[in-house]
């Protein structure tokens, strides 16, 4: 993998730090007028998700990280791995529990997920922004509440729990924003 000089630093660049692939979030040069320049960089560690600050001497080089995002369709879980497929090449990739992380509660078969690969191996799985899931359990609640105020918890087929309006019932399919975990609407079957 190529090395990057600090003057190539910009948001989104993938570099290796502390043995982990990282993405640059922010990059700012500081320099005493007559002195050495430094790059103060905020980086997000792509495996742990932690955001840390690092400082580099301007002009220094840093090892790049071979990281790429691919869009793959979710197939199934075999108990240990979650399997995804490229719908054009039919190539399959298996992600472990660590890579799937919290995305597990939003995985719907055939939905397209964004998988981040480091040296070809999945390190994170991002579900689509919106998914449609069936409600398996919720309090029957009161009929007639159509304003959607108040709400109640509902368990979805994947095990995720979201707050839904009182009128939404077991067996219905709802649309959820996976970035916030919030109910969006009912889906007509």
């Amino acid at each position: 993998m190529a090395n990057y000089s600090t003057n190539e630093f910009k948001a989104g660049l993938k570099i290796m730090q502390d043995g982990e692939p990282c993405a640059i979030v922010e990059n700012e040069m500081v320099k005493p007028g007559k002195g050495q320049a430094f790059n103060r960089v905020k980086i997000r560690k792509l495996i742990s998700g932690k955001v840390v600050e690092k400082t580099f001497k301007s002009g220094d080089s840093v090892e790049g990280a071979d990281v790429m995002d691919v869009d793959l369709a979710y197939l199934y879980n075999d108990g240990e791995f979650w399997h995804f497929m490229n719908n054009e090449t039919f190539e399959q990739i298996a992600a472990d529990e660590k890579a799937v992380g919290d995305a597990v509660k939003w995985l719907v078969e055939q939905d397209t997920c964004t998988i981040t690969l480091w040296d070809g191996n999945p390190i994170t799985v991002a579900p689509p922004n919106f998914v449609e899931l069936e409600i398996t359990e919720t309090d029957p609640g009161l009929k007639g509440d159509t304003a959607g105020t108040g709400g109640k918890p509902a368990t979805l087929i994947t095990g995720a729990v979201v707050r839904v309006p009182l009128f939404v019932q077991i067996g219905e399919v709802i649309k959820v924003d996976t970035r916030t975990g919030e109910y969006v609407s009912r889906v007509q079957k």
Binding site: P32, G35, Q36, F38, K54
Partner: peptide, 24 residues
């Protein structure tokens, strides 16, 4: 300073360290 520790570990030039301290 956690954001400086790695760099400080690599450098032992007095003026560089002075500039680093001054700027950051």
């Amino acid at each position: 300073y956690s954001s400086l520790a790695d760099l400080v570990h690599r450098e032992d030039d007095r003026d560089l360290l002075l500039d680093l301290a001054m700027a950051t």
